[in-house]
Design a protein around this nucleic acid. Structure first.
Ligand code: MN
Ligand code: MN
Ligand code: ZN
Ligand code: ZN
Lengths: 163, 163
DNA sequence: TCCTAAATAGTAATGAATATCAGATAGTAA
DNA sequence: TTACTATCTGATATTCATTACTATTTAGGA
């Protein structure tokens, strides 16, 4: 169901980096490999843990710096969720997100109706559009299932609260 | 968690708070008034500055705590942009966002095509949907105008304080 | 008015994200 | 291959948004 993992395999990533005038270090290649091999929209920490299995001496700072570099080069995108760290997305193809507000899982999806959407005129006159993306929030099936029915976490009390 | 869907003008906010079992303090009323009077999706700092004009002793911590409380009560929503602070949105009606990636301005908009969107089947089976929102990113007219059509995809954003 | 749990102000602590800098390295030229 | 050097990395320090702590104040009910 998730769209397929896209382009730059680590082989031509080296080319891209060089063409961009930056060095193709082993750290950068491994960080990209770690990110592009994940469907989870991981944060810098998760990528750090993964890369460290292959480069035990890599520093978290290098991971952050490298991901920022990838962003600047347009090789990845980022997204932010409430109360969470910056997360990174190697999928550059147009797509949308399903976000679980409980466990934080983010899943890509595409849909013909969404792809057919035209940028509204009001947006055109607002400025120069770069990207249009739909975000659907809710609870994934697993999280929804483990919610105890009748036990609301709301602070809002219904009219009659027995004391 | 957010079952209450009142469009609260600051007058009945006191009622809502009491009905929720929390105290209707002057700080809370003023913080809500400051937020609901803004169309800028301000962050906690901006709200703090505004409220301080009326309550000079208010603390930033109280602003944060109060906004978190409002979130929990479903009285406001929040959004996060890359490299920016949490921003708050008093507009509870379904709407979408125009986001300027340079100055950070966020503008609400609605559009019939978007309102007509149905949640895809794939999303239905993914879990329980709470909200579907379109985010359009780009550069607002003013920001686009003051940049030559060059490629300045810099991460460094000139921050202009809303309001 | 009085009482008490809840809320606030002031301040400290936390933690994600960046910056600094001495030493290592990639890419290049000889 | 070797040497050169600008770039890059790892370790560490720093920044800054957000959250936690706590003594004092206050909202709201009795
Ligand atoms: Mn994605
Ligand atoms: Mn909004
Ligand atoms: Zn979930
Ligand atoms: Zn702008």
């Amino acid at each position: 169901m998730p769209p397929l993992k896209l382009p730059p395999d680590s082989l031509d990533l080296a080319q891209i980096l060089k063409a961009s005038g930056v060095k193709a270090t082993v750290q950068r290649l491994e960080i990209y490999r770690e990110l592009s091999g994940s469907m989870q929209h991981p944060d810098a920490e998760a990528i750090y843990r993964g890369v460290r299995r292959r480069i035990p001496t890599v520093s978290l700072d290098t991971v952050y710096r490298t991901l920022l570099l990838f962003l600047k080069l347009g090789l990845v995108s980022s997204l932010r969720l409430p109360h969470e760290r910056i997360r990174f997305d190697p999928n550059l193809t147009p797509h949308h997100h399903l976000v679980c507000t409980r466990c934080g899982r983010v899943q890509d999806f595409t849909h013909p109706d969404f792809d057919a959407l035209k940028v509204p005129e009001a947006a055109q006159s607002w400025g120069v559009i770069e990207k249009m993306q739909v975000e659907i929030r809710g609870q994934c099936e697993r999280c929804a299932r483990q919610t105890k029915p009748g036990r609301s976490r709301s602070l809002i009390q219904t009219k009659e609260e027995p004391k």
